[in-house]
Design a protein around this nucleic acid. Structure first.
Lengths: 182, 182
DNA sequence: GCCAGGAGAGAACGAGCGTTCTCCGATTGA
DNA sequence: TCAATCGGAGAACGCTCGTTCTCTCCTGGC
């Protein structure tokens, strides 16, 4: 999908509706109404709902990782940069109506029926895991600690989504602080 | 729902179809075909699809925790009992066609639209967390370690579901072994 | 033997889905 | 000024959903 103003409106509308209510619960008509575009215009930009779903996940992967980097870059010390991941995660997940990790949720809903969505989710999680391992390595942690940090982050995200609170993320941050070398 | 042979057939069919393909992707007609019951019989036992969804989650909560206890009871030493949770999880998640934690997936799909499903997911996760904390306490671990074990378990389950492999669970087990007092 | 009653299966219903098609108005070139 | 072409809006289509209804058949009492 090209990067026009209309494409942005479409992706914005679809992204928030999909995130709030899920993919199958949101019809194309609601996306039409929320974006202010006509169905014909939408289908001219995007051949199907599944393609729109993938486009939403793809764009969100970029914005999500960009926001993560911005959070990390608030700190200079390598150890603090790892902890900053969790500080940022806590902020990211604390907005009203937040419902956890969009990719975990997408996998839960579409993982059994849509292989392309599964591939998108795996790609996102791989990217996150690699980045986390890199940050941990720069802070002097072993790959094993890197994997622990990743699993704690995943557990914290899924728990924050289900409970609606971000305490789990803060707890994970404390645990990571103990795992990293001083 | 009473515990008749037909109710069991219904719940068995619905549980495996829901788990494999998700809730909205499975129509009542597929459940009818898989269970061998007529629609009228199904609706005589269960007033709606949402009620069936909850009944499936409820029964699975019991069978899941019973299987967990059976896994834990293979060990007598308190420390080994905590590790046995992860050994059992790895087995539980290694079957063909496995797709991670049914409650996390249910939350991903229906969390935005069905408050009763959210409540069922929270109840299940609370129960698991309490049991885990208890086991960790009996092994001499602090509540903080108990929370770490819970977050690692959640992260491992969600990662195992997405990747289709159980390595993450085994890694989590190793990390827990390091966290627990010797 | 016959009629009343209940349970069976699956056709039917209204709604909503993703996607396409039709119609209408605007615009452009001579 | 007019005709031809293009693009937009949303009505329409075929399908599937969850749920209900109808019709049929079997059973049991007199």
């Amino acid at each position: 999908m090209e990067q026009t103003a209309e494409a942005t409106r479409l992706l914005d509308a679809a992204e928030s509706l999909f995130y709030e209510d899920g993919y199958q619960a949101v019809g194309m008509d609601r996306i039409r109404a929320a974006s202010g575009l006509s169905l014909k215009r939408i289908y001219a930009m995007c051949p199907s709902k599944e393609a729109l779903t993938l486009a939403v996940l793809d764009r969100r992967d970029d914005t999500w990782h960009a926001a993560l980097e911005a959070g990390v870059d608030r700190q200079a010390d390598p150890r603090a940069r790892v902890l900053a991941v969790f500080t940022w995660l806590s902020e990211w997940l604390s907005g009203p109506g937040h419902r956890g990790c969009a990719w975990i949720n997408a996998f839960g809903e579409l993982g059994g029926t849509s292989p392309v969505v599964v591939a998108a989710v795996r790609a996102h999680k791989d990217r996150f895991r690699r980045r986390l391992r890199q940050l941990v390595e720069q802070a002097g942690g072993t790959p094993q600690v890197g994997q622990a940090v990743f699993l704690l982050a995943e557990g914290a995200m899924v728990t924050a989504g289900i409970t609606g609170e971000t305490i789990a993320v803060d707890q994970a941050r404390e645990l990571v602080a103990q795992l990293l070398p001083a």
